[in-house]
Design a protein around this nucleic acid. Sequence first.
DNA 1: ACGATAGTGTCAATTTGTGTCGAATTGTGT
DNA 2: ACACAATTCGACACAAATTGACACTATCGT
Lengths: 132, 132
Amino acid sequence: MSGFLGTYTVNLDEKGRLNVPSKFKNILENKYGAQLVTVAMDGYLIVFPHLEWEKNENRMDEMAPLNPKERDEVRPYLSSASDCEVKSGKILVPAFQREAVGLTKEIVLVGMSKTFEIWAADQWKSAAAKKR
Amino acid sequence: MSGFLGTYTVNLDEKGRLNVPSKFKNILENKYGAQLVTVAMDGYLIVFPHLEWEKNENRMDEMAPLNPKERDEVRPYLSSASDCEVKSGKILVPAFQREAVGLTKEIVLVGMSKTFEIWAADQWKSAAAKKR
DNA sequence: ACGATAGTGTCAATTTGTGTCGAATTGTGT
DNA sequence: ACACAATTCGACACAAATTGACACTATCGT
């Protein structure tokens, strides 16, 4: 297996869950596990298998907890993150993240090797249009 | 579990308590315990699980007790701090801290890995707006 | 001791999250 | 192209978390 590759169009169900495509599911089961961390960026979510997320976390945890400047630096990332889990083959995207990046129903999963991304389908289309 | 992550909007009840979201509650129960220390910063409260607070305390205890400069540095933090506890799944924020950071009803909990923060909802919104 | 204020535990109604299952769709081998 | 297997979809029923209110307890000052 070569990490997360390709794009998949899927739908969120009425509670905001998405079905993980079987290719991604296999990678998670074989290389990682069910634990994930999602981070909202400008326009999309990044999904980290827990193992990959830890690399970032260790860096952030070195901050001096009573130093406001240092807190300000990491807050945007941590505050927009969430840990979640693949359950019954599905991922629940928390409401605050769905709102943060404007996910409604149709979404696109984009493989990015060690991580993958979740885009609102219309965002993805217009981003793709801009590319060329 | 990856520490405190994400943002949660909750309301203080009529006595100034907040419901701890279950994700945070699980982390506290599994990794820490019910004992917390809250510190007022400029605009928000930091909530330390007791174990994490001790790390600061150790650092502060190294200061020379007869050195006024060093005393001046730590005084603002300690004087604005309070210890509290999760009881029946809720945290009572002491009145003087609610006033210190202007908490009324709607508040936002912000995960910061080893700690989390309590913001007044309007403060949080205007801070977020400034970011970009 | 008294009332006033602040703090605590509990509950029912609502909202949100989870597991399952059949039907529809897609993929695979022949 | 066909039959069969695997995957995906959407819906439902159930479980858990959240909310807001209420009643009760402790604490404080007079």
